[in-house]
Simulated assay, not measured.
Amino acid sequence: MQFHIANMECGGCARGVTRAIQSVDPKAIVETDPPARRVTVQSEQPQTAFLPTLEAAGFPATPA
């Protein structure tokens, strides 16, 4: 699954996004692309499970 995160602009943001995602699913595989503001996640959790956590962490996301 992919997310677009408009305010993920740097490596620090990418680490914050990764921590937020892995707080929902510690086994999730997360690939971030800050220049494209895109995150790819491999997880057995549904995409909707991550949206509230990302928003609470300051990284509102939209499914891409």
Score class of each variant (00 low, 15 high):
Pro63Phe: 01
Val39Cys: 01
Ala36Pro: 02
Leu51Glu: 15
Leu51Phe: 08
Ala61Ser: 14
Asp33Met: 03
Ala61His: 08
Gln47Gly: 03
Glu44Ser: 15
Ala56Met: 09
Thr40Phe: 12
Pro63Asp: 02
Gly58Cys: 09
Pro52Ile: 05
Pro35Asp: 02
Cys10Trp: 07
Gln2Asp: 12
Glu44Phe: 04
Thr53Ala: 15
Val30Phe: 04
Ala61Met: 12
Thr40Gln: 15
Val17Gln: 08
Ala56Tyr: 05
Ile21His: 09
Pro34Lys: 03
Cys13Met: 02
Asp33His: 12
Gly58Ser: 05
Met8Ile: 06
Ile5Leu: 12
Asn7Lys: 14
Pro34Leu: 00
Pro52Leu: 08
Pro35Gly: 03
Pro52Trp: 07
Glu55Gly: 04
Ala6Gly: 05
Ala14Ser: 12
Ala36Ser: 14
Thr62Leu: 07
Pro26Leu: 12
Gln22Arg: 15
Met8Ser: 01
Pro34Ile: 02
Ile29Asp: 14
Asp25Arg: 11
Met8Lys: 03
Arg37Glu: 13
Pro26Gly: 14
Pro52Asp: 05
His4Arg: 11
Ser43Pro: 03
Gln22Met: 12
Arg37Phe: 09
Pro60Ser: 08
Gly11Phe: 03
Glu9Gln: 14
Leu51Asn: 07
Gln2His: 09
Ala56Ile: 10
Val24Met: 04
Ala6Pro: 01
Gln42Tyr: 09
Pro52Asn: 09
Ala14Gly: 03
Thr32Asn: 10
Arg38Val: 14
Arg19Lys: 13
Pro60Ala: 06
Val30Gly: 01
Val30Glu: 06
Arg37Leu: 11
Gln2Lys: 14
Thr32Cys: 12
Val17Pro: 07
Ala20Trp: 01
Ala36Asn: 13
Cys13Asn: 04
